[in-house]
């Protein structure tokens, strides 16, 4: 009996000492729950006003990466940011969550994004939260470093305007409030040439790479799929799984990106060539 208590104590102590997997966060909300986070995000977004990026031509590039899982200094992420800011056709970059890999590392990635902000084209980097960014109550850190996680922005070109919608799925669902917000936003879909939706958690489990990773509840997945199909969304960008997947369902293309974590074999990021069509160019690392 005493031995069992000692073993239990040691296991609990080791679990509590882990700064990568929040044992509490795995079974109970470690940050504010999705409805509270979305409420805060929408308030921040509404307070900051609509964000419009301007492209000098109808064709431009958007740089997208995900799952950088920052432990120490994120070298691949730095290379991504430098490439984006040295590309004359790039208007911005998107970081689709799982920025942190341990407690307190969100600030390291934010600093990397900031150090090159004044160089090159000065393209902004916009992020959404992933599940690892919510562990250890890091939602407050995310807000401080990256701001809202439910928002949209437009890219204005001489002839067209494109809509980008960023969603928070770090807690394994989008929640009622965010889905209502998305529904309202998509009513204006007709005003835009392309509509791109970004969320951290991949919607489908089509192969074995997803065996160990979690997804959204099925009903919410179906509700989201219908909303995206019904409104003619051009592209859905996702992360979380660390393995690339490209599927089309109901007229919508769902693209899951590789990770951009240092030390992994399948790291890449996406350069989205936006013109009359959306062309995907993956840059292997």
């Amino acid at each position: 009996m005493v031995r069992r208590i000692v073993i239990g104590f040691v296991v609990a102590a080791l679990a509590a000492a882990c700064d990568r997997f929040d044992m509490v966060g795995l079974v109970a909300p470690a940050s504010a729950d999705v409805e509270a986070r979305v409420g805060e995000s929408i308030s921040m977004f509404e307070a900051s006003g609509p964000r419009v990026l301007t492209a000098p031509a109808n064709g431009y590039r958007m740089y997208i990466c995900t799952d950088i899982h920052t432990d120490e200094y994120p070298h691949r992420f730095e290379a991504f940011v430098r490439s984006m800011r040295s590309d004359g056709q790039a208007v911005g970059g998107l970081l689709l969550g799982d920025i942190a890999n341990r407690k307190g590392s969100l600030g390291i990635a934010a600093a990397v994004a900031d150090t090159t902000a004044a160089t090159g084209n000065g393209a902004p980097l916009m992020a959404i939260v992933g599940n690892h960014d919510l562990f250890f109550g890091q939602w407050d850190d995310f807000k401080r470093y990256f701001g809202s996680s439910t928002y949209c922005f437009t890219v204005s070109t001489p002839g067209f305007s494109d809509l980008y919608i960023m969603l928070d799925s770090g807690g394994g669902c989008h929640g009622r409030r965010q889905m209502d917000w998305l529904k309202t936003l998509l009513r204006r879909r007709g005003d835009y040439r392309h509509c791109v939706v970004c969320t951290h958690v991949n919607l489908f489990r089509t192969d074995l790479s997803q065996f160990v990773s979690g997804n959204l509840p099925l009903e919410e997945t179906y509700q989201l799929m219908e909303l995206l199909s019904e409104n003619g969304v051009s592209l859905v960008l996702q992360g979380h799984d660390h393995h690339r997947e490209d599927v089309v369902f109901g007229g919508v293309r769902y693209l899951t990106l590789d990770c951009l974590k240092d030390g992994t074999d399948n790291a890449s990021y996406l350069v989205l060539e936006v013109g009359d069509r959306l062309l995907c160019d993956f840059k292997e690392q």
Binding site: A30, S31, D33, L134, G171, G214, P217
Partner: peptide, 15 residues
């Protein structure tokens, strides 16, 4: 009770 995000993501109430 049907939570989501458990054990793999970050836990949250769902249903």
């Amino acid at each position: 009770l049907h939570p989501t995000g458990m054990l793999s993501l970050s836990a949250n109430y769902y249903e």
